[in-house]
Structure formats: C-alpha cells, structure tokens
Amino acid sequence: MEVVDPQQLGMFTEGELMSVGMDTFIHRIDSTEVIYQPRRKRAKLIGKYLMGDLLGEGSYGKVKEVLDSETLCRRAVKILKKKKLRRIPNGEANVKKEIQLLRRLRHKNVIQLVDVLYNEEKQKMYMVMEYCVCGMQEMLDSVPEKRFPVCQAHGYFCQLIDGLEYLHSQGIVHKDIKPGNLLLTTGGTLKISDLGVAEALHPFAADDTCRTSQGSPAFQPPEIANGLDTFSGFKVDIWSAGVTLYNITTGLYPFEGDNIYKLFENIGKGSYAIPGDCGPPLSDLLKGMLEYEPAKRFSIRQIRQHSWFRKKHPPAEAPVPIPPSPDTKDRWRSMTVVPYLEDLHGADEDEDLFDIEDDIIYTQDFTVPGQVPEEEASHNGQRRGLPKAVCMNGTEAAQLSTKSRAEGRAPNPARKACSASSKIRRLSACKQQ
C-alpha cells in the first residue's frame, strides 16, 4: 500500500481520502468484538498479612480480608486513616479506646483483636480482627420478611446475652447493641463488635452510672431520649438488646419516626405494640426488656430465667442462610486472597510482582521504634555504632529488605517449588510478632 504524507491529507475531501486508502487503516468495530484482558491483581503485604478484597466500608474506614502468612488464618483488617478520623467527632479517641478494650477481652461471643499495625509515614492504622463471614443486618436484609425464624432468632439472642453478660462482668457498657454490630462466623457463632462508643466503668465505681451516649437513635432507651444527665449503663444495653430481639423476630421496630426528633419523642413516651403472632412468652420477655422505668427493666439474670429464653424451640421454618457475597455473588464466600496468593505462588519472584506497604510497620504502639547501633568497621576489626531503624520486634528492616532482594536475584530452581506461605513470609520485609 502506498504511504501517504499526513501533511497532504488536509487537502483532500472525505471521498478523496477514502480513495487514497484511509479506509485501510481506520476501522470501526462493535464493542462486543473487544476482548478485555482482566487487570492483574497485584499482591500487597502489610507486615506478614497478605491483603485481599474489600469486605465493607463504614464511617471510620474500610475493612478488607487478609491472610496471615505465618498461621494461614483468615483475618479481617480495619484500615483507618488518621486524616479521616480527625474529621469525625471523637474519632481518634474512640478508636484508641476500642483498641484498649479489645486487647483485654477474651470471649467467644466478643470479636477478638489479633494485631494492631501502624504506618507512621502514611498515617494509617490497621486493626487486624478475627474473620466473620457476614453481619446479622446483612442476613436480615437478604430476606423479604426482614426477620429470622424463632428457632434461629433464639439461638442468636442467647449468644448475644452470653457476650453481653461477659462485657458487663468486665465493667464495660457497649451502648450500641444492634444487628449491624453483631457479626457471624461460618459456624454460626455470634460476635459482638464495634466497641468504639463503649465505656469502661471505673474499677471502684459504686454502680453503672453513665453520662454520655453515642449509640444508634432507634435503639436508645427513654432515659436517653428524654435527655437525662445520668442513667444506668447496663440497663441501656438491656433495652438495646430488647429492641434487637423485637427486630429479628418481627422484622419491625418498636419505635419509629420520620426524623430523629419524632423518633425520640415516640421513644420518650414509651408506647409501642407487640405483634400478636409473637406469642405470650416472647411478648412477656419483650415487655420486661423494654420496660420504661430502668429500675423495673429486666436484668440479665431475669432474662436467663425467663421461660422463652430457657425453652427449646424446634425449627418450624427453614433458617435464613448466609447470603452470597454482594460484589462477586459467591454463595460460598470464598477467600478473596486466592488470586493474590496464586500471583505470588505461580509467578517468578520479581520485585515488580508484589507490593510491600512499607519497609517498617510499627505494631502494638503509636510511637516510632527505637534505634540500635549499626556496626561500623574500624582499624582493629571492631565496629562502632551508628543508628539503624528496627521493627518493634527488633528485626532490622533494611537488612531483611536487602537480603530479600538478593535472594530474589539468585538463580535457584529449587526455590520455585516452595509453598505459597513460605514465599509470602520471604517477601515480607518486616516480620511481626
């Protein structure tokens, strides 16, 4: 084909351009004929944790799935940006308080904090938690009735009371019990989460009196709706648990309003109706937990002794299953770290194939690490110290990083047969305790 000078094309009309061969290198194709290559998922490591896909996002930050490269346990990490926390009232204080509380709590029905990582340079905090497959609110939203069968609701409620009793025994008032803060594992274990607005009572406090509340409006008791200066913290949790039980068994809320002012007005009056299909035992329990006067409201001991709580409820309806993943529609909620794991395991070791967030990740503290002497050669063979940054567990980050890069360049065919977990650990520049 004859090559045409581009400067001469402006002298031709459209018809003349076609005659000189423009149609031979300008093609129009339908979008259905285009085959897009999927974007390669680059592996990203935060300390010893391999990052997966997004699980959810809230006002405080994002939650992603991660894999512990040492234990191969599935975890969830809450990623918090200090810049964003400053824009939220009491944001930083709530996060630090939640970390302090979770560090000393150990119960099967309370979410466990596994690790805390802090990135000084990017001003990011990573709260590594045990993995929960789904939230209770997500399960309720997945069915038209917006409720659980009585047998399933009873099982979840009993676990909620177990976890709540443990928190109260530790002198902690949750203040925000609701389905949105109750998570579930694949085995059906309920976990109380989000202790950001919780309050730890003084060890020598005479009672459970509280003065502040930041919980969700629909789950607040009349004493808070009416603006009382002080109130019983434990009875606030009992009320919120009662509203939660009402919601998961009926699909409704005892109090509603077009806006928060109308909602608080209705809560302050204390008038509500219980659907007739709840039955006398459940209705009596709800009335005891939603008692207007805090002094007359049920205690956890009274809830445990109630006939509806103690009764064994046979399954009359099919239980609400864990819904498919909202993004991938995966009904099994498979591990989202698998594509990243395959990338590390299947590809040659190259620095361009993975990302390490930083050479140094500070753990379990908000301060910069200490310094240790770096050896410097002298005339008599002895070495003197220069400062060298280290990880919180004493690992020399720069030395590990250099060693990792040197190993990656060394030709050794046997290394390709290593397991995925050992490869992740070798790529991680800074081991965590």
Rank of each mutant, 00 (worst) to 15 (best):
V4P: 06
P6T: 04
Q7G: 03
L9H: 15
G10Y: 08
G15P: 15
M18E: 14
M18D: 01
S19R: 04
V20P: 11
V20D: 14
M22W: 03
M22V: 07
H27Q: 04
I29Y: 07
I29S: 10
S31D: 09
S31G: 14
S31L: 06
T32R: 10
Q37N: 05
R39H: 07
A43Q: 00
K44I: 08
Y49C: 06
M51S: 04
G52S: 13
L54R: 04
E57I: 07
E57L: 05
G58S: 05
S59L: 14
Y60I: 09
D68W: 05
S69Q: 01
E70D: 06
T71D: 12
L72M: 03
L72I: 08
C73D: 12
R75N: 00
V77S: 02
V77Q: 03
K78W: 00
K78A: 00
I79F: 01
L80N: 05
L80I: 05
K81P: 06
K81I: 08
K81G: 06
K81Q: 04
K83I: 10
I88E: 13
I88G: 03
P89H: 10
G91P: 15
E92N: 11
A93S: 05
N94D: 10
V95S: 11
V95F: 05
V95P: 15
K96H: 10
E98Y: 01
E98T: 01
Q100T: 10
Q100D: 14
Q100S: 07
R103Y: 07
R103P: 05
R104F: 08
H107I: 00
N109L: 03
V110T: 13
I111W: 00
V114S: 02
D115W: 03
D115M: 06
E120M: 07
K122N: 13
Q123G: 05
M125A: 07
M125W: 09
M127T: 10
M127N: 15
Y131S: 08
C132P: 00
V133H: 12
G135K: 15
M136Y: 00
E138M: 09
M139C: 09
D141S: 08
S142L: 08
V143S: 12
K146N: 08
K146G: 04
P149Y: 00
P149N: 11
V150G: 03
V150C: 04
A153W: 00
H154Y: 09
Q159M: 07
D162V: 08
G163T: 00
G163L: 02
L167K: 00
H168Q: 05
S169L: 03
Q170G: 11
Q170R: 08
N181V: 00
L182N: 06
L184D: 00
G188C: 01
T189L: 09
T189P: 07
I192T: 00
L195V: 02
G196A: 02
A198L: 07
A200F: 02
A200W: 04
A200Y: 10
A200L: 03
H202W: 02
H202M: 08
H202P: 04
A205Q: 10
A205P: 01
A206I: 12
D207E: 12
D208A: 08
D208E: 11
T209W: 09
T209R: 09
T212G: 10
Q214S: 04
Q214W: 04
Q214M: 15
Q220G: 04
P221S: 06
P222S: 07
P222Q: 03
E223L: 02
N226V: 04
N226S: 04
N226I: 02
G227E: 03
G227M: 15
G227D: 07
D229S: 06
D229E: 06
T230L: 04
F231W: 02
F234E: 14
K235G: 09
W239C: 01
G242A: 04
V243I: 11
L245I: 03
L245P: 00
Y246H: 00
I248A: 07
T249R: 09
T249P: 00
T249D: 00
T249K: 00
T250F: 07
F255E: 04
L263R: 11
F264W: 01
E265S: 12
E265C: 15
G268D: 13
S271F: 06
S271L: 11
Y272E: 09
I274V: 03
P275G: 07
G276R: 10
C278T: 09
P280I: 10
P280T: 13
S283R: 09
S283D: 09
S283Y: 03
S283Q: 13
D284F: 03
L285T: 00
K287P: 01
G288V: 02
L290Q: 00
L290F: 03
E291G: 05
E291I: 08
Y292D: 07
P294S: 03
R297V: 00
R297G: 00
F298W: 04
I300F: 08
Q302F: 07
Q305W: 05
W308S: 00
F309V: 01
R310V: 12
R310I: 14
R310L: 11
K311V: 04
K311D: 10
K312R: 14
K312G: 15
A316S: 04
A318F: 14
P319R: 13
P321V: 11
I322F: 09
P324S: 12
P324H: 12
S325V: 04
P326L: 10
D327C: 09
T328H: 13
D330I: 10
E342P: 13
E342N: 11
H345P: 09
D348V: 04
D350N: 06
E351L: 11
E351I: 09
F354V: 10
I356L: 08
E357Y: 11
E357F: 05
D358P: 03
D358C: 13
T363D: 12
Q364R: 07
D365G: 14
P369H: 03
P369F: 09
V372Q: 12
V372G: 07
P373L: 07
E376R: 11
A377H: 01
A377L: 06
S378Y: 10
H379R: 11
H379G: 07
G381A: 07
P387Y: 05
K388Y: 06
A389T: 09
N393D: 06
A398Y: 09
A398T: 10
Q399E: 12
Q399T: 09
Q399L: 10
S401L: 13
K403C: 03
K403A: 14
R405M: 14
A406Q: 14
A406F: 11
A406L: 14
E407G: 03
A410M: 02
N412G: 15
N412W: 04
N412R: 14
P413S: 12
A414L: 08
K416M: 15
A417E: 08
C418R: 13
S419L: 08
I424R: 13
R426L: 11
L427K: 13
A429T: 05
K431C: 14
